[in-house]
Design a protein around this nucleic acid. Sequence first.
DNA 1: GGCTTCATGTAAGTGGTTACATGATTGG
DNA 2: CCAATCATGTAACCACTTACATGAAGCC
Lengths: 189, 189
Amino acid sequence: MALRHAVLAALLDAELSGYQLAKSFGMGVANFWHALPQQLYAELARLEKDGLVAGREVVQDSRPNKRLFTVTGAGLAELERFTAETAKPSFMRDDLVVKVHSADHVDTAPLIAQLTERAGFARAKAELFTRLLEAMRGSRTEEEFLRRGERVGPYLTCLAGLAYEQVNQQWCERTAAVLRERQAARADR
Amino acid sequence: MALRHAVLAALLDAELSGYQLAKSFGMGVANFWHALPQQLYAELARLEKDGLVAGREVVQDSRPNKRLFTVTGAGLAELERFTAETAKPSFMRDDLVVKVHSADHVDTAPLIAQLTERAGFARAKAELFTRLLEAMRGSRTEEEFLRRGERVGPYLTCLAGLAYEQVNQQWCERTAAVLRERQAARADR
DNA sequence: GGCTTCATGTAAGTGGTTACATGATTGG
DNA sequence: CCAATCATGTAACCACTTACATGAAGCC
């Protein structure tokens, strides 16, 4: 039950619809959790039923109507409770890493391609995060913003996303380079 | 269906029992995937039924008997197929990051404690990985080993684990420091 | 006239976690 | 003598993914 809290945390900064949440969580700004639209609609329904969020219908013309959600008092209390609870360790689970583990026993050409592609995605995400951070801190320096800004939570999670994507990119590039070099050396013999 | 391939990849280097696999995957050397013992026993049964691994009974006295597993030809072919298949993106999903996102709205004391604890674990894991890498490359330099070593897959995945734990540690420490400082500043007013 | 965006879901399936069960041996 | 290690599982539950469904408006 962690998606619940991710949704609550996302709704702290803005009143959003399921569709808008889906965009953040699906990719793009999803710097702290990932989820598909179906999951979000289902979770919002459950949260509303439990009184942790409140939805209000917004009528639009030339667009389908939508429901915007806000965190209730009970919702904030639930987040508070969750945050205090001891965190379970998080684990790395990545197909690509499994593939690299068996690199010496299989054809490396498609692996190199996947590593290169992944490096590109990571780089794009890192750039996006860099811009988001700039937007959040405005004219202030990072130090200054983190000391006196009113809302640093999203900034700190964005820093986590940035660091994560940067090492991801570096590792993918280096691994691809190593495998390429070994492939070339094999071809020589 | 990714645990399958993680198990196959782990069995490339050694003939292991479910129990031994469980130790690697549960923590410690689990530098490339995480799984609980129950999952592994179930997965090994499925893999054997499908002919991707072969088990042999080893009778022991003064210890319960065990079954050691090896990858079959079909298993290797399956790994080959899996490695060539285009990889899906991997996503960050971490309770602690969700908690930090809502840091401005909740009591930060327990959060700081969790971040500090997590930093400690990350540091311990990073040190373990450093030692594993040294053991794998022996007297060679990293450059040299990656160029001419016979088995670099596990080395590369261990490098991924090391980088991951290092940024994890740094982020946790910095985030804890930021939250501590803000807590102190609030107490002053 | 067809593709993307807005907007919201249902249903079936797979994969992972939590809880529980058993039993012998070694080490402090 | 009590805890940890070796060794293997079953059962129930929860979370996430894949596939499918619907419909109007705007954009090239």
